[in-house]
């Protein structure tokens, strides 16, 4: 089992205060980790740290493969059509995967290729976000609430995509409130705890 991402004692500071208690995270090929915790405990911050968008205030993170991050903001351009959005991301991330039209049909958006992303519903936008993971495959997926605003079929779609990704030797860390991924081998759980306020020295 090759390790794709390692984090040791990482935490982030906002206005000098720790956001969450220092954590160790290991993602190996074929592994899934579910990040759990109450609202505001720092799940999104942890995922953004792992993605490299934030720099850890303490601890160290080493990534041995390219990462994909899917956050609350969908990273899609409302004025471009679904197909244009996907074709841009396919070229932008430099690791072309399946074609835009195949990604659209895989995520249940067949026939919406020419529709501007602005005209999609919240759930369809999430699906388009998932399609963006398929057009530029990267081994480490960091998904912030991938089940949000998806219907039951959408939730199953996420589970299927996760299973395929893990079978191909990828790794996943995802945060969730609604449902937990149903996978062949149970996903590891990682509880994020809010850091206690430090006494001023």
């Amino acid at each position: 089992m090759s390790l794709l991402l390692e984090a040791r004692d990482v935490t982030f500071r906002r206005q000098g205060d720790r956001v969450f208690k220092p954590l160790d995270v290991e993602l190996a090929a074929g592994n899934a980790v579910v990040v759990l915790g109450p609202n505001g405990c720092g799940k999104t911050t942890l995922l953004r740290l792992l993605a490299g968008i934030l720099q850890p205030a303490e601890g160290a993170i080493s990534r041995h493969a390219a990462t994909a991050f899917l956050g609350h903001a969908s990273a899609l351009k409302a004025e471009l059509t679904c197909r244009e959005n996907l074709e841009f991301l396919r070229a932008f991330h430099g690791t072309p995967g399946i074609s835009a039209s195949r990604a659209l049909s895989r995520t249940g958006l067949t026939g919406l290729g020419l529709r501007p992303a602005r005209a999609l519903s919240a759930g369809q936008k999430r699906r388009l976000g998932l399609a963006s993971l398929l057009v530029s495959p990267r081994p480490i997926w960091l998904l912030d609430e991938p089940y949000a605003s998806l219907d039951d079929a959408g939730g199953e779609l996420v589970d299927e995509l996760l299973a395929e990704h893990l079978a191909e030797g990828g790794a996943v860390a995802l945060s969730t409130h609604q449902r937990k991924p149903k996978l062949a081998s149970p996903a590891g759980e990682l509880w994020v705890q809010r850091a206690p306020l430090e006494e001023p020295a």
């Binding site: 390219a66 990273a75 899609l76």
Partner: peptide, 14 residues
């Protein structure tokens, strides 16, 4: 910045 495209620049391979 607002639609989340900008944070994708920092994923490390760009």
């Amino acid at each position: 910045f607002e639609d989340g495209t900008l944070e994708q620049w920092w994923l490390g391979h760009l």
